[in-house]
């Protein structure tokens, strides 16, 4: 059964919530049940931001999980918080540009992606979220990369439209590092 529970976590402004939303849109376009729930405490402003995304063939019960199957961590505090929580045999995706530390977990798959560096190379450090999402999709296969791209085209705000192609490239670059 296709099923994923993922926490995306980082600083406010890194596009953590949008990466999760895009995954939810892609899952929905492929006929999966989806939930997206942000942490919405007052800590969001300038502090940490995270969201939990569940995609499943089955109707979704709990929209939050204490031990996710996957975690995508954008910064050091998020690694510290979520590394211990990922379920055994799960996936930990690390933004290696901002996180120098290596994970000590041996019972999970850990993938290091220099997402912020690649994003900078593509012309905008803020699209590191798409590099990580591309890598996540390649690692989990929960949705197709094409579905994510189609949804990106549909849901990128007008203000960000000029960054559509770099965003697409970011998804590809992230995916290529995992495949």
């Amino acid at each position: 059964m296709r099923h994923q529970e993922t926490i995306f976590a980082g600083f406010g402004g890194q596009g953590v919530l949008f990466a999760g939303q895009l995954l939810a849109y892609a899952g929905m376009s492929e006929g999966l049940h989806v939930t997206w729930i942000p942490s919405y405490g007052p800590e969001m402003r300038g502090g940490t931001a995270n969201c939990t995304v569940i995609l499943s063939e089955q109707e979704i019960g709990a929209p939050v999980v204490s031990h996710p199957l996957s975690a995508v961590v954008f910064n050091v505090p998020s690694l510290a918080k979520y590394e211990p929580l990922v379920r055994p045999n799960g996936l930990l995706l690390v933004n290696a540009s901002l996180i120098a530390a290596q994970s000590a977990r041996e019972d999970i798959r850990v993938v290091y992606i220099p997402a912020s560096d690649i994003a900078t190379e593509l012309g905008n450090i803020r699209i590191a979220n798409m590099v990580l999402l591309g890598a996540y999709i390649a690692a989990t296969d929960i949705v197709s990369l094409d579905a994510a791209k189609a949804q990106l085209d549909e849901h990128l705000s007008d203000r960000q439209r000029k960054w559509l192609q770099p965003n697409m490239q970011a998804l590809d670059r992230g995916a290529a590092l995992v495949r």
Partner: peptide
């Protein structure tokens, strides 16, 4: 409740 208000779902 707050989580139902903030959650996105299809």
């Amino acid at each position: 409740d707050g989580s139902l208000g903030q959650m996105m779902e299809s």
